[in-house]
Design a binder for these strands. Structure first.
Length: 289
DNA sequence: GCCCAGGCACTCA
DNA sequence: TGAGTGCCTGGG
């Protein structure tokens, strides 16, 4: 891994890493575009400013923080060149998608934050999901910093959410998802669901556990497993993936379960990576819509 | 103003 | 077991 210490921060040089593609490919919600190719990212209870340069991605932080937090968060030690090569050889669609979205990385995000975020995501578009997450963070999280006179808040812990009522959640405009948030919080606070335990369970076992929560179906569970737990067999099958799969691969397949099974056989343990390249590609080009 | 979103639970056959 | 339907809300 090649990085350089500059007077502004850490410059990470890798042709397989593009900050815009990584943040905007649909896996995360807490980021804000700034002028001149910069982004403000909220993760790990910190504010991070990053910028795409010609020569790499500039992290405005010190070396210690980069190595302790951001190297892992942005999955910088994984060989994406090899992943893309393997996927490229499968078919022309993946070749196109991986070449176009050459710089996305699958982030290592907090499982709890993923659980709540993707429960909120159902029947919503990304700008609105982002607003809901910010509203919940502002109401229940801690102030973690200020950037250009705007305050930013951490994502609330299960304990910080445990006393929130149905009414309180509805006041934040989460709508019918309010009881789902309460059920998820209760599962975790009571210890009925220990999120850390899911790391060592198989994909199928972990998925079954997550789906005990009201409001968590296959799609939400797959997002949590992929983005929160790094279970790369997960293939979140949402409307865009359904469109791209029907359009490119499997016009004879219509049921979600059939799509998931197809993906499992065809993409194997790279299913999650394939999903991300295809999803981002499909959404950008409105494939199948 | 209308339509429908990055799904899910619930109902009914 | 599978298909049909309602759901809060606000962006497009």
């Amino acid at each position: 891994m090649a990085y350089f210490i500059t007077q502004d921060g850490i410059l990470y040089n890798d042709k397989d890493f593009d900050i815009k593609q990584t943040l905007e490919c649909g896996q995360c919600f807490r980021f804000y575009p700034l002028p001149q190719g910069q982004y403000l990212v909220i993760a790990k209870d910190k504010l991070l400013v990053v910028k795409q340069e010609q020569s790499g991605v500039l992290f405005y932080c010190n070396e210690k923080e980069f190595l302790e937090l951001w190297q892992d968060y942005f999955d910088l030690t994984r060989d994406y060149c090899q992943i893309k090569k393997t996927l490229c050889e499968k078919d022309i669609y993946l070749k196109d998608a991986t070449q176009e979205k050459f710089g996305l990385r699958l982030l290592h995000q907090e499982p709890w934050e993923m659980l709540i975020s993707f429960i909120l995501s159902q029947n919503k578009q990304i700008p609105h999901i982002k607003k809901l997450i910010e509203a919940i963070s502002k109401s229940y999280g801690d102030l973690i910093g200020t950037f250009e006179d705007v305050n930013y808040y951490s994502f609330p812990t299960p304990n910080q959410l445990k006393d929130a009522s149905d009414e309180a959640f509805r006041n934040l405009k989460v709508g019918f998802r309010a009881p789902y948030l309460i059920d998820a919080t209760q599962h975790v606070v009571s210890g009925r669901l220990v999120l850390d335990d899911l790391y060592k369970l198989s994909y199928d076992e972990a998925k079954t556990k997550l789906m005990m929560i009201k409001g968590v179906g296959e799609k939400v569970a797959d997002c949590v497993l992929l983005y929160g737990f790094g279970k790369y067999e997960a293939f979140p099958t949402d409307v865009w993936i359904k469109r791209v799969m029907l359009y490119y691969y499997a016009s004879h397949i219509s049921k979600e379960n059939e799509i998931r099974n197809f993906a499992k056989d065809y993409f194997g343990n790279l299913a999650g990576f394939a999903q991300q390249y295809l999803f981002y590609h499909a959404r950008d080009h409105k494939i199948g819509k």
